[in-house]
Design a protein around this nucleic acid. Structure first.
Lengths: 169, 169
DNA sequence: CCATCTGGGTTTCGTATCGAAACTCAGAGA
DNA sequence: TCTCTGAGTTTCGATACGAAACCCAGATGG
């Protein structure tokens, strides 16, 4: 894994991690998405369970809508006036593996004495779900589930890699 | 996936996602870790490739060391004085799947016209690596690689789940 | 043995973001 | 008409961030 993206040659400012974090890297964004994954859709519900400041929540919801991770859509309960709720789009649900990866790291390295507060079950069979690094060729690693680790990975410059302005020829 | 953690009953402040983000959720932290995964170890190198302010980099490195994701260790090049470098610990490399998940989301949803700037290869066989949601029972999904999606996942309260203070009996 | 260079930071100070609490707004119900 | 409610917006003090200057210690050169 080490040393395989030569930073004396390749720029770092067009990285997909950086671009992703520009969208979801602010303080409360992932927690808002977590609540969305748990089915929370309304401003008041998210605000009260999360305890986030209302102006900050408004700002986060707005940028998530702008970037297409949530859609703001009207709803109306009987006898109530029309209001708005926020629902995950496919773009939003695609971030689920990242959220689960963060959760699993916390479960392992910052454990609550009582155990994990949330577990993920396969809807169809009830077994536990995990995030894993897998090889397209189907090779398995040493992990409990056969997942690979960072030590099995070699990052290589892809087609979108750009040279640094000051790269030596 | 929807509505399965009842937030009128369960507290949100002991979530593993939240605890993880308290450690790695600040602005530059993931980018510092990314450079660490690419083999960068020295303050000057990280600072110049990332363009982060030096005081902020110093602060991020310090909290990553405090939380055990990096170790600060001395090194000495011949004819130079002793200096320090930062190396990933196992605790740090365990965050690799989260980083890859963020990268893959960016590759898919915020693509560079030229393609991904970085690809991951399996060190042993050269095939591409990906992050996937997998079922412990081995069930496969519809994805290209058989990975599951958020829609296959049901979050359920785990042993560490705590009731809200104001939860109704 | 004095000056300079270098890696790895710390200080200072101005700007941007966050958090808490108060305020707004519109439509439903009494 | 008065009040309630969900969904925000405004205001203002407290943090965090960014740029640039400064510092420190041990090579290295003259």
């Amino acid at each position: 894994m080490a040393g395989t993206i030569d930073r004396t040659r390749y720029a770092s400012d067009n990285c997909s991690v950086g671009r992703t974090l520009a969208v979801v890297g602010e303080r409360w964004t992932f927690l808002v998405l977590r609540e969305a994954f748990y089915g929370q859709r309304r401003f008041e519900d998210i605000q009260s369970t999360l305890g986030v400041a209302r102006n900050v929540l408004a700002a986060r919801l707005q940028t998530l809508v702008e970037h297409g991770l949530l859609v703001r859509r009207p709803y109306r309960e009987p006898g109530k006036r029309e209001r708005f709720e926020y629902r995950l789009t496919d773009r939003g649900t695609d971030l689920f593996p990242a959220l689960v990866a963060l959760m699993e790291w916390g479960d392992k390295h910052l454990p609550d004495e009582a155990g994990p507060p949330v577990a993920l079950e396969h809807r169809d069979c009830g077994a536990r779900l995990h995030v894993e690094l897998v090889c397209e060729a189907g090779h398995r690693g040493d992990g409990a589930l056969g997942g690979l680790t960072a030590r099995d990975a070699t990052p290589v410059p892809g087609p979108g890699a750009r040279l640094r302005d000051d790269a030596t020829a």
